[in-house]
Amino acid sequence: MNARYLIINCDDFGQSQPMNRAIMHLLEERKVSSATIMAPAPGFEEAAEWIRRRGQANIGLHLTLTSEFDAIRWSSLTGHPSLHDESGFMHKTVEAFERHADTGAVIKELAAQYEAARRYGIRLTHADNHMGSLYGMATGRSHIPQVLKQCAKWDLPFRLFRKVHAKDPLLAAIPGVESVVAKASSLAGVLGVAIPDYLLSHSFHIEEGETYEGFKQSMIAKMYDLPDGISETYIHPAVEDACMLEQVPHWEKRVWEYKLMLDEDFSYSVQDAGVILTDYNHVRKHGRASRFGSALTLVRELLRKS
């Protein structure tokens, strides 16, 4: 039987102080694999200073092109008008970003966010994308080629996936997802960018009638259904905060995710299921595909009739 590896990544490090507190705690206790930091967000400096003081090694870059909540807004680092809405902050939705963002401005913003993290001495291990804004899921306007070229330049693995897990409730339901994944993953292979095999998703918001116990059981079930290879799942953990609970939609789900990582039942399920927790250093070593084979796959997918 092949090994089943899992990366648990904390997205949104630097979003706010309540999120920073939760993520710092989970990293300190080694309950998660890694976290990815948001350079434009209000809590970035606090998070970056903490990383520098500790010499924290398992930190990636959460490439951020949207600012979705009224209570917490931020602007781009480069200030290009196509990256902002009428309020002067980054676009609230992925659709608005895809429709309005200038591609050259996006590339410069990605580079600026990378340099912001590097200025703090953060030794980045990987990169991913806030809200999936670069994937083209809203209008079909993808910036995946641009971000993969940047990751090749930075020598960083990126959050993509080679295969769609049949039991994933969100990704498996996207029409034509297999072809899209094949094109993106093969381009990563051509460029020499390491990626995981699978991405495991779950609902960002609280479903109707959902409770913490039900959420926990669904996440435990994922551990026993984990496919062979390298999988990544992501969480957005936060401590309880009355202001955020009132002003940020589904903040309670973030508190649940923090609680889950500290839950002994979940920790036991990982061990009992034989899952090996790892990080993006494992992806860097084992997540690159053959460039020649990837090129053949890319050509085949580009020639495939829709």
Rank of each mutant, 00 (worst) to 15 (best):
E240L: 07
K285N: 13
L134T: 02
K149Y: 09
G132E: 00
I206D: 01
S306W: 02
A194M: 06
D70G: 08
K167N: 07
N2T: 15
R118T: 03
P42F: 08
Q113K: 04
G55H: 04
G274N: 07
K305W: 02
A184M: 15
F69W: 15
I230R: 05
P157T: 12
A57L: 14
Y120M: 06
S75C: 10
E301Y: 01
A184K: 14
D155I: 02
R4E: 04
M223V: 05
V94K: 11
G293D: 11
L171T: 15
Y120V: 05
H91N: 06
K183L: 15
K222Q: 14
A71E: 13
L26G: 03
K108H: 11
R119D: 04
N9D: 01
T103M: 08
A182W: 00
K222F: 06
G79N: 06
L187G: 05
Y120K: 06
G176W: 00
Q15N: 07
A221S: 13
V275P: 09
A3G: 08
I37D: 04
A117Y: 04
A41D: 01
M137A: 13
E46I: 09
I230Q: 06
D102L: 06
L262Q: 13
T211A: 02
E208Y: 03
H100G: 05
I144G: 03
C243H: 12
G189H: 03
A35T: 03
Q146R: 12
S306D: 13
S87Y: 09
G293P: 10
S33Q: 04
L110N: 04
L156R: 01
G214I: 00
L6R: 07
L77A: 05
T93H: 01
A166Y: 08
V147D: 00
A71D: 12
I206H: 04
R21Y: 13
